[in-house]
Amino acid sequence: MSSPSRQPLLEVRNLRVEFFGRRGRLLALDDVSFHIDPGEVLGVVGESGAGKSLTGASIIGLLEPPGRISGGEILLEGKRIDNLPYEELRRIRGRQIGAIFQDPLTSLNPLYRVGEQIVETIRTHLPMSEQQARKRGIELLQEVGIPSAAERFDHYPHQFSGGMRQRVVIALALCAEPKLIIADEPTTALDVSIQAQIITLLKRLCRDHGTAVMLVTHDMGVIAETADRVAVMYAGRIAEIGPVQDVVKRARHPYTHGLMGAIPEMGADIDKLTQIEGAMPRLNSIPPGCAFNPRCPSAFDRCREEKPYLLPVERSQVACWLYDETGARREAAHG
């Protein structure tokens, strides 16, 4: 275990999430482990359905039935939070872990003034009077860059544009000074021209407040620019996790490699982008062994039989048998 001075803010250990349906169980998250340090930005990338958002929802305890955590644990500052009763977890949500969702247009209740929603959130978590909360709310709106915040405070959500609404959502996520923010594709629904502004804002705010961020996205550009470390997810498992430079520039896992090859580069003289053959398997048809093996150019026998676990490779961890020396040796002994 790490020393107390370097205790991670959030630790997820062997998280399993299953969906219980009429036709049996579907394993949606399989043995997911990672940690986030205080003030750190962890990017989580992967295709749709890889389990990125599900991981975020599990952490804040808002998995929707029939989804359920069926194994592993989630620790916030060393304390387990995955098995807390609803009411205690509610106190953590917003207060310790904030959340930002994909679509700012639908995240705000249309029938309440923006200010009312901010004051409500502040007063749910902090012992403040109506006036104090209002003052703080206006300051927050100023901080997220909303012009004439005092006036806008009393406007309704429909009077704000998409980008402005996402700023309000960020203010709402920050208003009780949480230590961690889970941002689930915060810019996907926005205009490209606004995306950069929102990411810059989020980054600046979290640096100023010392807030850690789990940034879920499928935009590698955003990750490369913002994250300290990156976790790459595939079919409900973590394929690779490590410092952003390593993952982007020297991808270890064949899947990450393919993913990076699919990013267009300015000035590069290529006719075609590399693309990974095939598609991510559906949850009910994940192949045995490594989930990526049918699409993997370097797959060998072991990949089809044995599920890889995260192996340390320099500063990263990679779930790929290519990097298992002991295993290779074992295989040699067998053969």
Partner: peptide, 21 residues
């Protein structure tokens, strides 16, 4: 709806969510 999900993520009480929102 998303705003109910977001209200939960903000840690509002069930009463505020069910009856207020």
């Amino acid at each position: 709806t998303d705003y109910i999900k977001f209200a939960r993520a903000r840690g509002l009480t069930n009463r505020a969510i069910n009856f207020g929102h």
